[in-house]
Amino acid sequence: MKRYSRELTVAIALSALLVWLAIFAPHFFQPQPLLARLTAQVPVLVLTIGMSVVIISRQIDISVGSQFGVCAVVAGLTSAAGAPLSLALIAATLTGTAMGALNGFLVAWLGLPSIVVSLATMVTWAEVLRLFQQGRFINLPAGVQWFGFSQFVGQASLLFFALGLLGAMAYFLKNRTGGRHFYAVGSDSEAARLAGINPKGVTMLSFVLMGTLTGLAAFCNMVQSPQVDPKCGVGLEMKAIAAAVVGGIAVTGGRGGLWGAFFGLLLLATINPALTYMHIDAYWEKAIQGLVILLAVIADGLRTKRSAA
């Protein structure tokens, strides 16, 4: 029971918010906007999965927002050139993987701190993208949005895909040896090495996975709209990190799970629409987001202090 206490806290907070909305703002649960809101979170969820793995391995990647923008533009240009969607998907994931591998190489093999490496790659990719695309939207051909199917089918398939990915990754991390390696390296890399795990390889893998998922997320974002906005990735890294952390994944590595991150994401993603539905002015949004993060981490701190005492 205690192992899941953080997941439980976040899930309870989320349920409380939802119940409150159900009573005071029932419009919140209208099917169309609800579905649209959930689908819009699919790219962030895919990123959060990757970010969780990176944080569990005791690293961090703040370049994913910039990477996301680059991947989105690559996918967009591929599609706009008339290539089939599968090719756009491959192009986006390969681009993401390559950028992730660069981070991974610098962190795992050169031993540079990941926050600094990804800070440097963050500004670099953002500027490259700005110079290359100059903020111009890419208009996509018909047949890209919702894979060419109806809106409902498109939304449903994206949601199924994202939940499937979440379930599979959660199972893999929790129950398979390969998944436990991330935890082992994250909690004590030296001990992991002595236990026969290759910490460099595992760290590298976490960044490569992050990059691949970033490409995938950018693709999931592209198919929701007939245009690609080159600024679509700005600030996404903060959303993914906040979701993981509110969901109980420890920045000190080795602790937390994907379901917690999932609930964390849902909680944070519900706050903004809740303000609109409760007719609270938008300028409170950032303050409330900050408070939620602080409350989550304070709750954590008090619990560990109590259990230590």
């Binding site: 961090i60 903060m238 990190i241 906040a242 952390v245 420890a250 920045v251 000190t252 002015d281 938008a282 300028y283 409170w284 949004e285 950032k286 303050a287 409330i288 987001q289 900050g290 408070l291 993060i293 602080l294 981490v297 304070i298 954590d300 701190g301 008090l302 560990t304 202090k305």
Partner: peptide
């Protein structure tokens, strides 16, 4: 004093302080 990770605490106040500034001026 609460021994919380600085990265997360200041990520929270990063949002909180800017949010308070925006709320005070209504942006």
């Amino acid at each position: 004093f609460l021994r919380l990770p600085p990265l997360i605490v200041t990520l929270g106040t990063f949002s909180l302080y800017r949010g308070l500034a925006e709320a005070t001026t209504q942006g």
